[in-house]
Structure formats: C-alpha cells, structure tokens
C-alpha cells in the first residue's frame, strides 16, 4: 500500500533521509524505532508534504499513486494522516469546527457530498465517548491550553473522525499516562483493517504491547538499517541502538 523507494530528502540543504526503502502492505502495522535525530519525524513530514522538506531523489507512493507530487491537503484527501509528535495549537477555532472543515474539505476533494451537521455531531459524540474525551473539550479552541496528553488524544480523535487509509503515528505514546495509553491504543486498534496501513513511530516497546506490529524497522541516520518481527523491538529495548548506529556510520 505504502511504497517508499530509495528516498532521499533534505531539510535546509542538509540531507536527513538518505536512501530509505520501506513497504507497508495494506492491513499491516509497521513500527519504526530509532535514536533521536535519526530522521523519523522528518520521514513523516516528507510523506505528508510539509514545505521545507525537499525530496532530492527516490519515490513514495500510496496504492501505486505518486504521493510526492501532491499538495499536503491532496495527500490528506487520499487518506494520509499524521498524528503529530508535537500537535499545533489553533487559536480561535473550536476543535469541532476545525475537524468538520477538514472532513468536508476532504470530501469535496474526493467529489463526495458534505457531511451535514446532525450526522457530524452524532459521529463526534460517539467517537469522543469511545476515546473517553469530554465533549465540552471539543468546543474549545483546538489544542489551546490542552495538556500534552490531551493533545495526543485529540490527534487520535481526529484520526478516528477522518478515517484515513495510511496512519502515521509519530510518538503518539509520549506524554500519555498509563490509562490514556490504553484508551488511545484501543482507538488505534479499532482502526486496524485489511484496507488500512499503519506506521507507528515510537521509542518504547510498551506501546507495541498494545498495538502489536507486524514488522519492526530500525531507522538510523536516515536509512532503514534492520527489519524484523515484533521480537526486534524487545531486543532494542534490551540492547539499545549501539550496533545499528555503527552499521549506519
């Protein structure tokens, strides 16, 4: 479903992604682990089309369609969703208004009818309940004054509402308390399906106890330097990245 081939990308003329190849078939969950500064968030920004992240060579496609030539919002309309490592604050725009605007923009881009207010509110209430989010919070400006954990929960709320096909989770577990981690993981697991693919970036094996990956990859110095099954995450937890950092160097 997601196919990344020999991708190279720079930020501020500095090469960060250096020949990265990765395939995530539909229905699978792949975890990406790697040391700080390896390029994990950079990869998520390159895939989602953030400006300033320049692709110098290579390719990335979703179901065979080139992603890299599309605008960020066009990629979103095709089902690419990023749960941000550091979600942004949107002052003056209530969370519900923001999400409804996003949902209808995506629908419009796909040539679908807009969602009406009653259907939207019903979906929002159900989704909020399942993620144990206080509905009143959704009336506040998105993420403004939210705690770190609340922001992460709001990312998953948006993800559930928008129902994307490619889910990229960048350290969604950081900042979550133990209960929130379980709730958020359950929300993510509920979205596992044969026509979705997930890329889960994390530093901690613990998240992978809840969201069981099909494959685990080590990203170091801008490349995938090792891949394996779930046991690789356990090995990394035990031994650290030493041997992979040397491989990359």
């Amino acid at each position: 479903m997601l196919a990344i081939n020999n991708l190279c990308a720079s930020v501020a003329n500095k090469p960060i992604i250096k020949g990265l190849t990765l395939d995530v078939p539909a229905g699978e969950v792949h975890a990406i682990m790697g040391p700080n500064g390896a390029g994990k968030s950079t990869l998520s920004y390159v895939l989602t089309g953030r400006s300033g992240y320049e692709v110098t060579s290579g390719a990335a496609s979703l179901d065979g369609e080139d992603l890299l030539g599309l605008e960020a919002n066009e990629r979103a309309a095709r089902g690419v969703f990023l749960s941000f490592q550091y979600p942004l604050e949107i002052p003056g725009v209530p969370a519900l208004t923001f999400i409804r605007t996003a949902m209808n923009a995506q629908r419009k881009a796909r040539g679908e009818a807009e969602i009406g207010a009653p259907a939207f509110l019903k979906l929002a209430r159900e989704t909020a309940t399942s993620l144990k989010i206080d509905f009143e919070m959704l009336k506040r400006s998105l993420n403004v004054g939210f705690s770190g954990g609340e922001k992460k929960r709001m990312e998953i709320f948006q993800m559930a509402m928008l129902s994307p096909r490619l889910l990229i989770l960048d350290e969604t577990d950081s900042g979550l308390d133990i209960d929130a981690l379980k709730i958020v993981s359950a929300g993510v697991n509920a979205m596992r399906s044969p026509d979705r693919a997930m890329l889960v970036i994390t530093h901690y094996q613990r998240l992978l106890d809840y969201i069981k990956p099909d494959r685990v990859h080590v990203l170091s110095a801008g490349r995938i330097v090792a891949s394996g099954g779930p046991e690789l995450a356990l090995e990394l937890e035990r031994d650290g990245y030493d041997k992979y950092v040397q491989v990359a160097a």
Binding site: N73, F84, P87, L88
Partner: peptide, 8 residues
Amino acid sequence: FYARQRGI
C-alpha cells in the same frame, strides 16, 4: 501545515 495535513 497542520490544517493542510488534515485536508484543508
């Protein structure tokens, strides 16, 4: 960018 990532 955040809004665009959501499709706006």
